[in-house]
Structure formats: C-alpha cells, structure tokens
C-alpha cells in the first residue's frame, strides 16, 4: 500500500516509516500539516497516518481541509495519551480510526491494514468465504466443509469480522470495537475467551485451523 505519515517527532516518524516499509509499504513522510495537506492532495494514498499535534497546521485542521477538498483517503489519527475526548473530535473532523500513543506497532499495522482495504460502502456482500468456511449473511448460516455450524449472535458477528478481514491481523481492541462497540483495554482475557469458544465451533474436528493467534498482536483468519 502507499501510505502517508504526517508526524513531526523524528523518532516516532522514523519508527513508523521504517516499520511500515519493512512490512512492504511505500511510505511518504511529512513533518508538518501544511506539507502533509499538499502531499495528500497531490498524490493518491491508501491510508494516511496523521498525528493530532503538528506544527504550522494541526492534524485535525489538515484532515478537515483535505476532506473539504474532496479527499476521501482513510485517515488514522495518532494522539498523545490520556485524551478522553480526542477520539470523538478526531472522528468528527473526518478521521476513520484513532490510536493513542504509545501504541504497539502491531496494533497500528493491523488498523492500517484494515483501513487500507476497507470495502466501498456501496458494495453489498451476501456471502463470505474463507477456504472451506462459508458464511451466508442473508440467512445467517455458517458452514464448513458443508457441515452446518450453529453460532450465537455475537459469535456470528465475531466470525463475520474475522472473515471480512481474512488474511489480516486483527487485534483484541479492534474486535471489541467491531463486535461489541466497546472501546477499552481489557485487563482480563475476555476476548481470548470468546475466540477460543469460536475456535471450538469452527476449528475443532477439522483437519486444519483457520483462526491463528498472532503472538503479541491478535488473531488472523485464513487458510
């Protein structure tokens, strides 16, 4: 993917740019909001990663300006820790996702990947398929190798999210947000519990596992 990183702190931006390049992304970098806006409007990016606090033009204003100019590139905001209302204002300004510093790189990567291949809103999907696992969103039926799997409401949504993001890493907080609409960092293994229950239903008794645990990051569904 082609990414734009707008971050003024040299250490953080080096950390971001190097990390993302190692993952095979093409990364452009700007150190202040006005340059960032200029680059955003003159290039086509898959995702923009923008710090809230930037010199010359702050991140919020930069995204507002880009949105006003018709730019629809997904934006991931970065903000300093503690901020409790930053998320709302960030999303209001036209951001698509939000991450509070300090963050684990795996979390950032997972979110950037999720944003980058976000399907267009107009696209209506009725069937999802990953390997021998099939999901009928219309009839709310899940089958693997033709065998029907009975899932509860949340389990269905959990699997749906994993399938929509098949092949990509999704983190625990991403799952909490997508499936339960909660935004907090659990101090317990609550997400793991749900994943292991889902695993018991879709992986137990089959020759290979579809849900894989990615150490230090989250989970990934794939063959």
């Amino acid at each position: 993917m082609k990414l734009l990183v707008v971050e003024d702190d040299p250490e953080t931006s080096a950390y971001l740019v190097n990390g993302l390049q190692e993952e095979g992304h093409l990364v452009d970098h700007a150190t202040e909001g006005r340059d960032g806006l200029f680059m955003a409007l003159n290039n086509i990016y898959d995702v923009m990663i923008i710090d809230r606090m930037l010199p010359v033009l702050d991140g919020l204003s930069m995204v507002r300006a880009a949105r006003a100019a018709g730019n629809k590139t997904p934006v991931l905001f970065l903000s300093t820790m503690g901020g409790i209302d930053d998320r709302v204002t960030g999303l209001d300004a036209g951001g698509d996702d939000y991450l509070v510093k300090p963050f684990a790189f795996a979390e950032l990567l997972a979110r950037v990947n999720a944003l980058g291949r976000r399907p267009a809103l107009t696209e209506v999907v009725t069937h999802l398929r990953v390997g021998d696992l099939q999901m009928d969103l219309f009839k709310r039926r899940v089958t693997r190798q033709g065998r029907e799997i009975d899932l509860q409401h949340r389990e269905f949504r959990l699997l749906e999210y994993l399938m929509r993001n098949a092949g990509r890493v999704v983190t625990r907080t991403m799952l909490l947000e997508a499936v339960w609409d909660f935004r907090f960092d659990p101090q317990t293994t609550v997400v793991e519990t749900h994943i292991s229950r889902l695993r018991a239903k879709i992986d137990r008794g089959f020759d290979h596992e579809l849900i894989r645990t990615i150490r230090g990051a989250g989970y990934s569904l794939g063959e």
Binding site: M81, G82, D85
Partner: peptide, 22 residues
C-alpha cells in the same frame, strides 16, 4: 508502566471535569 501512566493522566483529565460539555 505506560499503561499506568496513561491511566493516571486519564484520571486527572476526568477529574478536571471538562468532559461534561460533551
């Protein structure tokens, strides 16, 4: 440590009461 730090800042920010306007 960072988590503890963030939690402390969060508490301080909440205690400041500015979130009420939202």
């Amino acid at each position: 440590i960072l988590k503890t730090f963030a939690a402390m800042l969060r508490i301080a920010e909440i205690e400041a009461g500015t979130a009420r306007i939202r």
